[in-house]
Nucleic acid binder design. Structure first.
Lengths: 219, 219
DNA sequence: TAGAGTTTGTAGGATCATCCTACATATTCA
DNA sequence: TGAATATGTAGGATGATCCTACAAACTCTA
């Protein structure tokens, strides 16, 4: 039942200006076993207001907000609740100096919005375990999607590649099984192994990967 | 198998500056039956480049890009491929005049980022059917999440409300069934009916709703 | 007020997905 | 060459989704 035995739940409050993006992200956070959504806001004002009544242990907050900057809000939130873990979402790659300022002010983690969603999750996991997580790509020009490892696909066996392609076309395990003359259980096994090999956790990640690189991939 | 018989697939290209948000949105788009992700980019330059080789029929693009504005890119893309349907994501509520400019330049639809994800999907569906979709909330101060209809929950029967609460706590149908002394099939039936009544399509929408309004809801 | 329509409570079948385990054969590496 | 690892194959348990069904209760209207 619980595959993450050592970690406990983080209760998150999410402050992102644009509802469209906030919601999109919230759906992902919801699907993470160890994350409980506690609340959300567009503005710093709203954040502080809501945090006063609710005991979130983690605050995910944008650097740029309409009414104030995330840093200021974070500092105020920390004063209210020193135990709060704060993850700051920044727009661009930041300087070492700026990062130092953040960390000094009590912000635990900084994640750039130019990073994939996965990085955010990784950072959250680290934070949960009390570890500091400094995104390795924070300081360099990061073009992760574009430079994303195309080679991991080629680490799959021929059959695995075949199955991965078909799965990316949204074929069901049953359909693929019929096509290849196998049991649908076998297809699921392939799926599991493909995800592990490629370092994905969920099928959608694989599908997105395949869509991104379909044009560069063989066939 | 196909519950949307009359609509055909739109092949989408998505241009959003920040990868974090773009990815978050892409996962959603991927889960929509009628949408095929064709490609993605952070910049206008990249968009035009990629669109030259790929026949997307729909372009979802941000108004503000690093290298250029979405409007300009859209116009260039339209010159390249006049059949392209363009959905522009704008930051704020826009004036009627500005909207007119957009529509005149061939942009089919404008969606504000202050809207929930659902609005984007609605707009896409309209576009697919060739209808123009002008977001009704585009012109007024929109605080949809905050003002979201709390009453729809109360339109549920007592038992439905109970089940909805338990589902929002991520209990499985089986667990809820045991708790209530029912068959798990019954719980699924409740789920289906709840979703219909509340106008949601997927369970995560219900869960997000419940998390948002749990504090305002009875009990 | 009776009959019709709608809502509510209940559940089954078919189909998929996920997570976990297993095992034989093939390949590689030390 | 023997041990470790990779590959191909599949089963069981559990859960979700989509669709259909049907009886009891409630509501509304002619």
């Amino acid at each position: 039942m619980n595959r993450t035995p050592s970690t406990y739940k983080s209760t998150c409050f999410v402050t992102i200006d644009k509802l469209l993006y906030r919601e999109a992200l919230l759906y992902h956070l919801m699907n993470q076993e160890q994350i409980e959504i506690l609340g959300e806001a567009s503005t710093g004002f709203d954040t502080l207001n809501q945090l006063a009544h609710r005991k979130a242990n983690t605050l995910i907050i944008e650097e740029d907000l309409k009414d104030n900057d995330g840093l200021t809000i974070s500092e105020m939130a920390l004063e209210l609740q020193p135990s709060l873990s704060i993850l700051l979402l920044v727009d661009v790659e930041i300087s070492q100096k700026r990062l130092a300022i953040y960390l000094e002010s009590g912000i635990k983690t900084v994640v750039s919005k130019t990073q994939p969603v996965k990085e955010l999750f990784k950072a959250l996991r680290y934070m949960q375990e009390g570890k500091a997580y400094i995104n390795p790509q924070l300081f360099q020009q990061s073009r992760p999607a574009e430079t994303m490892d195309e080679t991991i696909f080629h680490s799959l066996s021929a059959r695995e590649q075949e199955v991965a392609q078909l799965m990316a076309d949204r074929m069901t395990a049953q359909e693929i099984a019929e096509r290849l003359g196998l049991s649908h259980k076998t297809i699921h096994s392939y799926k599991d192994r493909i995800l592990v090999k490629m370092g994905f956790e969920k099928l959608p990640e694989l599908i997105l990967y395949m869509k991104r690189f379909r044009n560069k991939l063989p066939k």
